[in-house]
Write a protein that binds this DNA or RNA. Structure first.
Lengths: 144, 144
DNA sequence: GTATGTGCAAATCATTTGCATTCTC
DNA sequence: GAGAATGCAAATGATTTGCACATAC
């Protein structure tokens, strides 16, 4: 299986764009942890590693990462989008606590079937899906 | 079945807050169409009807509308959140075209079962779920 | 060599806040 | 009458853009 960097290089080449060390550093950092990320946090993680990469470079890269299928928007919270890397990882969905913000990831194969059904019914080519369940976790549900 | 205004009045009373004609006008406008809405668009709709209601009043009302269960966040697009009224309507999910932005709503009962399963497995109290399928509509999929 | 990418600083856009005034209860 | 809510204008915070310089191809 190709690495995420290889996938990106191929994508960039096909689009006639240029690759840079900044872009590869950002991608490596995104794939360095399992967690979701947001722009500011990713910027700080890179900064802590003494990588001088500006926020605009991150913002400018994101549309390409989405288009190449390396990442996906996960959810909108605290006034900004959160992303997750999806290449090479089992697709998963989120269960989010509305009180403490805790997020549990889970896998649900049956969603794939629903996706297929929808594609046929509405004549869509479905690329991805997002399923998010919102509620209160075991700790928070006691005093809603 | 209570009207949305009645539901809101009750919610406001329970919380010890105050109701105002501005709030009721906003709620009426939200429920006046079947469509999703965003703050700016709602503001303009009210303005066109010569209702002088400021954007901050809308922004300040939204958390209460979410809390009372009258509306729900639908999706984040074009740099801002889009909402939908959910009180008195069949719950539905979205199928969105990544190219033209077309949105198809659909109902999927089996998601309710998945929700229940998750609630048991992770000891959550689940209040709502969002399912969004992303892809290309019949027209757009021909030239991706 | 050319055109794309970068960092910086400034601009933009959605949302929030401070405050004086108005209104609900 | 007290405390909330409103509108306005200003502040905030995320994201985008203009531009001069650097660099990938």
């Amino acid at each position: 299986m190709k690495s995420e960097i290889e996938v990106f290089r191929e994508f960039i080449r096909k689009k006639g764009l240029r690759n840079t060390p900044e872009r590869e550093a950002i991608i490596k950092e995104i794939f360095a942890t399992h967690d979701h990320f947001d722009v500011d946090e990713l910027y700080l993680r890179l900064k802590n590693k003494k990588q001088k990469i500006s926020k605009p470079s991150i913002y400018r890269l994101i549309p390409y990462l989405l288009e190449s299928g390396l990442i996906q928007e996960a959810y909108f919270e605290d006034g900004h989008l959160h992303y997750e890397h999806i290449y090479g990882h089992e697709h998963h969905c989120h269960l989010r606590c509305l009180k403490c913000g805790k997020i549990i990831e889970f896998e649900e194969k049956s969603l794939k079937k629903i996706e297929k059904k929808l594609a046929e019914k509405h004549d869509f080519f479905i690329k991805a899906h997002k399923f998010e369940a919102l509620g209160y976790c075991s700790k928070c549900k006691v005093n809603i």
